[in-house]
Design a protein around this nucleic acid. Structure first.
Length: 506
RNA sequence: GCCGCAUUCGUCUAGUGGACUAGGACACCUCCCUCUCAAGGAGGAGAUCGGGGGUUCGAAUCCCCCAUGCGGUACCA
């Protein structure tokens, strides 16, 4: 209990600068789960005035994907999680790519071998596979049988003579228990006999995660490790390594897993469908492309496993930094609610200034291949701000503004309790009235059209409904009068005439 | 199989022995506003705190057992 205060101001660690790292491996696009981990690390560092380090764990050459790194860096920057040391900016503890550090790992691995704490293993992958197979058949716990741990000098010479390239394995104590504390989960202890002699250095000369991770965290002066819960069970191995090197282990913090919306499985990178039918978004880039605001995603992600007072839900970035506290991170897995994210995003959009929102929408239109001019978008914003949950929603809502021709089934023009004749009359009357208008602004339009509707004996929803379809091609659109003003007299009159023509033909 | 972790409304969560007839938010339902759709306002329904045993005057909160879920058990991270 006492050591929980380590992270608080005034605790024993207070003098020491907090140094945390986000250490993804470039095997695929940047995942939201990873983003949450990065965010917590970043918040923790900023809260304590510490350093946030980005380290690339590219030690698996078989899973390496060239696209992953640019995607990651772009994603982090989009979310505003800038790193103090790492790729592209360097730092005093580099290099920050593990593939550039293989020599370091090799030396440390050799050191352990010399000290008798690790050994070379010449077992072939085939033998290991066979071994696991047998163990499974016999129902005994799988694990390396330590065949090479007790090789004689002669046997080693023989393997070497055969040209077999060995791996280096840690000689795990056969008895006793390994214990450690997790800031969130308390004391955890595991029996050593359950651990097997893990590989430290692979035969291709690259380190395994465990070795590289421990060495780098130590060499880079990492004080706190915040990472996903899936790493919890490998901590005992790390403890053994720290002990073998005689190093102090950083404070461990294992963050709860993020589950998919059903709450059943881990939010996976495999594409799944939501109950509604739409695809489940999992990569940061997908959220960006779908029109989510980075600040909304950050706010949402912050709350996925952390809470401030159980009451407040919206936080600015500065508030997040100020309030973030590991003590308030929950231990249990949380599932990703797309509904809630959408709600947050909509709220953020509503709170955006007109210029800001218009600017962001310009990007969306451009990417969709729509040539929107800033003047029009600026006018559109007040009309659609409360009607879009994502930036992309603006596309479907306002497409008719940027299209020369619109198309829709002519029957849509006919409103409830109306027929072709009355609709035709309404459209013609509107056209005539609009033609003679001295001004074509929202206020004038509303005044004149309301009056005309009454003269025609139509209910507002009937009259405006038919004008809406005629001018926008939709039953649902932004508010009518503002929309007409944006379209302009020419286009409105033309669309009214076209509506009449279309109606006449059916 | 073994090991580890977790378990409060459908979901995110508040809650650290009495202030809990368990609070907030999303989603849902009703009503109001209204040119459509939203937004906004007012209300509603929804957890006996996974189950069972204890400890205690008193437990969602402490202990034990069980169940379930998740994770790990690689020359992947």
């Amino acid at each position: 209990m006492g050591q929980r205060t380590n992270t608080d101001k005034g605790g024993p660690m207070a003098e020491q600068t907090v140094r945390v790292r986000f250490a993804p491996s470039p095997t695929g696009y940047f995942h939201v789960g990873g983003a949450r981990t990065a965010l917590y690390n970043w918040l923790f560092a900023r809260h304590h005035g510490g350093r946030f380090i980005l380290r690339i764990e590219d030690t698996d050459r078989t899973r390496y994907q060239p696209d992953a790194l640019p995607d990651l860096l772009e994603g982090l920057r989009w979310l505003g999680l800038c790193w103090d040391e790492g790729p592209e900016i360097g730092g005093e503890y580099g290099p920050y790519y593990q593939s550039d550090r293989v020599e370091i790992y090799r030396q440390y691995a050799e050191q352990l071998v010399r000290e008798g704490k690790a050994y070379r293993c010449y077992c072939s992958p085939e033998r290991l596979a066979r071994l696991r197979e047998e163990q499974r058949a016999k129902g005994i716990p799988p694990g390396y049988d330590r065949h090479c741990r007790y090789l004689t000098r002669e046997q080693i010479a023989e393997y070497e003579a055969q040209g077999i390239v060995p791996v280096i394995r840690l000689a795990v104590p056969l008895e006793g228990t390994t214990e450690f504390d997790d800031l969130l989960r308390g004391h955890i202890s595991v029996e050593n006999r359950l651990l097997d002699d893990l590989v430290l250095l692979k035969s291709d000369g690259f380190p395994t995660y465990h070795l590289a991770n421990v060495i780098d965290d130590h060499l880079m002066g990492i004080t706190h490790i915040l990472r996903g819960e899936e790493w919890l069970s490998s901590v005992p191995k790390h403890v053994l390594l720290y002990r073998a090197f005689g190093w102090e282990m950083p404070i461990q913090v294992h963050l709860p897993t993020i589950l998919d919306p059903s709450g059943k499985g881990k939010l996976s990178k495999r594409k799944k469908k939501l109950p509604g039918g739409q695809e489940m978004l999992t990569f940061v880039r997908e959220f960006r492309e779908a029109g989510y605001l980075p600040e909304a995603l950050v706010n949402f992600l912050a709350l996925l496993g952390w809470s401030y007072d159980g009451q407040t839900e919206f936080f600015t970035r500065d508030e997040l930094i100020r309030y973030f506290d590991l003590q308030k991170v929950s231990k249990s897995p949380s599932s990703f609610s797309y509904d809630k994210l959408e709600h947050m995003n909509a709220t953020y959009i509503r709170n955006l200034g007109t210029n800001d929102l218009a600017g962001r929408l310009m990007g969306v239109y451009r990417r969709a291949g729509i040539e929107a001019d800033i003047g029009t978008v600026l006018q559109l914003v007040p009309l659609i701000r409360e009607r879009i949950k994502t930036l992309n929603d603006a596309l479907a809502l306002t497409d008719f503004v940027f299209q020369e021709e619109i198309s829709y089934p002519a029957e849509e023009l006919i409103q409830k309790k109306m027929d072709r004749t009355s609709t035709l009359a309404a459209l013609r009357a509107a056209e005539a009235r609009l033609q003679g208008l001295e001004a074509f602004d929202e206020e004038t339009l509303e005044r004149e059209l309301r009056a005309l509707g009454e003269e025609l004996g139509l209910k507002p929803r009937q009259f405006f409904g038919c004008l809406r379809v005629a001018c926008t091609g939709k039953r649902v659109s932004p508010p009518l009068f503002g929309t007409l003003a944006i379209l302009g007299r020419e286009r409105v009159l033309r669309r009214l005439r076209q509506a009449v023509e279309a109606l006449v033909e059916i």
